[in-house]
């Protein structure tokens, strides 16, 4: 039981962080604060994903010299030597001497972070335009302005209709 808690406490802490950032995104009426909450949520998801790829006793997935056998050392020393080494039993699947963490989550999250900031700035650009049009970036104020405008338009239409019939 104790072991189970120790091995899973990391996940629970990250889930807690995720929920806090989800709460920020949900509860904030201010659009910028909401976007900050979303970007925190994304960062935390990346944390979770990368943590899943960690291997106990492993190191960063940059190969150490022990795992780079000779056939690569002939780089630049001439293709002939390299071809000879490959022909002499070069094996595609190497047995690793050292333990490395899983590189796949790193790749996926690396690109996700860069795309995240790009989409964040699209959201911010939309917020800047909202501010220019509505004069506020509070979601409920924007909604109130929308309702007011709709009501005014309706009243105007009705009065025009009355004038036309009269």
């Amino acid at each position: 039981m104790w072991t189970f808690i120790l091995t899973h406490a990391g996940y629970w802490a990250i889930i807690g962080l995720m929920m806090i950032s989800l709460y920020i995104a949900f509860s904030a009426e201010n659009l910028i604060k909401r976007l900050v909450g979303l970007s925190l949520f994304q960062t935390t998801i990346c944390l979770f994903y990368v943590t899943l790829g960690k291997i106990t006793g492993g190191t960063a997935p940059v190969l150490l010299p022990a795992d780079m056998p000779e056939h690569g050392a002939a780089h630049g020393a001439g293709a002939a030597a390299e071809a000879h080494l490959v022909a002499g039993g070069g094996e595609r699947v190497a047995e690793l001497v050292n333990v490395y963490s899983n590189p796949l989550p790193h790749v996926l999250m690396l690109t996700a972070i860069v795309v995240g900031v790009a989409t964040l700035s699209v959201g911010l650009a939309l917020i800047v335009r909202i501010r220019e049009v509505y004069g506020t970036i509070e979601a409920d104020d924007v909604r109130a302005v929308d309702i007011e405008t709709a009501l005014a338009q309706e009243a105007k239409l009705e009065s025009e209709l009355k004038e036309a019939t009269a």
């Binding site: 997935p61 190969l63 795992d67 780079m68 056998p69 056939h71 690569g72 070069g90 094996e91 595609r92 699947v93 190497a94 047995e95 690793l96 490395y100 590189p103 796949l104």
Partner: peptide, 8 residues
Amino acid sequence: TYLKINWY
């Protein structure tokens, strides 16, 4: 698998 075949 990526780790194992990468160097070759």
